[in-house]
Amino acid sequence: MFDDQSPLERLTRYEAKYGTHLPELLASQELQRVIEDGFCIIPDFWSSRKCQQAVQEIEKLLEREAELGVKVWRDDIGADIRIMGSNNLSPNLDLINDPKVQDWMHTLYDVNSLVGFTMSAKIQALKGNKGSGYGWHRDSCIPFQFKAILYLSDVSAEEGPFQYIKKSGNRDEMARFCAQHNIDLDANRLDEYEQYFDMSKLVELIASAGTLIIVNTRGIHRGKPLTKGTRYALTNYYWPPESKIPAHIKPYVN
């Protein structure tokens, strides 16, 4: 899209096209927060019992991984463990087909259908863990990208809470941040620029099991490295209907 233009020109044209359905978004309190702040938090979206069943299902799939032929991705130290496409393995691990989540996502993307899956994740406080997402990053640099994240376990400050720089996915804030610090607008790995973050806008999403987070992952975010315990979560990944699951991800999807 607009490959012959500068990143800022591409961003500006994308925003102008995307903005045609903003009135519909701003009519929803939850989606208004996603557009304005970058995220919204919805407590008690799942019951404690439903979360416990999901955790048990994750552990069962990991214990019987070879027997059941489950595709599992692990980081190099075995701290971050992911089962992509878990919605195809168990109804207890299916967030992608939740009607309310679908409705929100279709509205955010302004489409009637999406390509995607639910990922079940277990991350442990092993020495050297980098948290979920391997440090500060943004999933997309020009188009909006939205995810739904559901905590399946209680998450304290030590158990890898989702961290987000508020409003950092908004066009004006992105342009200012990159211009002020001479950062490529197309850069997505951002650990080396942490010193420039406005930490007064850092939000650490400490919450109990069952909490749903709808987030614009074009903003700067990470899963905080764990210093104790284990964090379980479900995450919905989405792509526009004309797209396909990226080639580097597809081999791991069940």
Rank of each mutant, 00 (worst) to 15 (best):
D3S: 14
Q5M: 11
Q5R: 08
Q5H: 09
S6I: 07
R10Q: 14
T12S: 13
Y14A: 05
E15W: 07
G19L: 00
T20I: 12
P23Q: 02
P23A: 08
L25Y: 09
S28T: 12
S28V: 07
R33Q: 15
V34I: 10
I35W: 14
I35M: 15
D37R: 13
D37E: 14
D37P: 03
G38Y: 06
G38Q: 07
C40E: 05
I42Y: 08
I42N: 08
F45P: 00
W46G: 02
W46H: 09
R49S: 04
K50V: 05
K50D: 08
Q52C: 04
V55F: 04
I58N: 02
E59I: 12
L62W: 12
L62F: 11
E65F: 04
E65L: 14
E65M: 15
A66I: 13
L68D: 14
V70W: 10
V70G: 12
V70Y: 07
W73E: 15
R74L: 11
D75L: 12
D75Y: 11
I77L: 13
D80M: 05
M84A: 13
S86W: 00
N87T: 03
N88Y: 14
N88D: 10
L89P: 10
P91W: 03
L95T: 08
I96L: 10
I96R: 03
N97A: 05
N97S: 13
D103N: 10
W104E: 03
W104V: 05
W104H: 12
H106R: 15
H106I: 02
H106P: 01
H106C: 11
T107G: 00
S120C: 13
I123H: 00
I123N: 00
K127T: 12
K127Q: 13
K130P: 01
G131Q: 06
S132I: 07
G133P: 06
G133C: 08
S140V: 04
I142L: 05
P143Y: 03
K147D: 03
A148C: 12
A148N: 04
I149N: 02
L152E: 06
A157K: 07
E158D: 13
Y164A: 04
K166H: 02
S168T: 11
N170M: 12
R171T: 12
R171C: 09
C178E: 01
C178Y: 02
C178T: 15
C178G: 01
H181V: 01
I183Q: 02
A187T: 11
L190F: 11
L190D: 10
Y196G: 04
D198T: 05
D198W: 07
E204V: 09
L205Y: 00
G210T: 06
L212C: 09
V215R: 06
N216D: 15
N216M: 04
R218C: 07
G219H: 15
R222D: 04
G223Y: 00
G223A: 00
K224I: 04
K224E: 00
K224H: 11
P225K: 07
P225I: 03
T227E: 00
K228E: 14
K228R: 14
R231G: 02
A233K: 01
L234P: 09
N236I: 10
Y237S: 10
Y237A: 06
Y238L: 08
W239Y: 14
E242F: 06
K244V: 06
I245V: 12
P246D: 05
H248P: 00
Y252H: 07
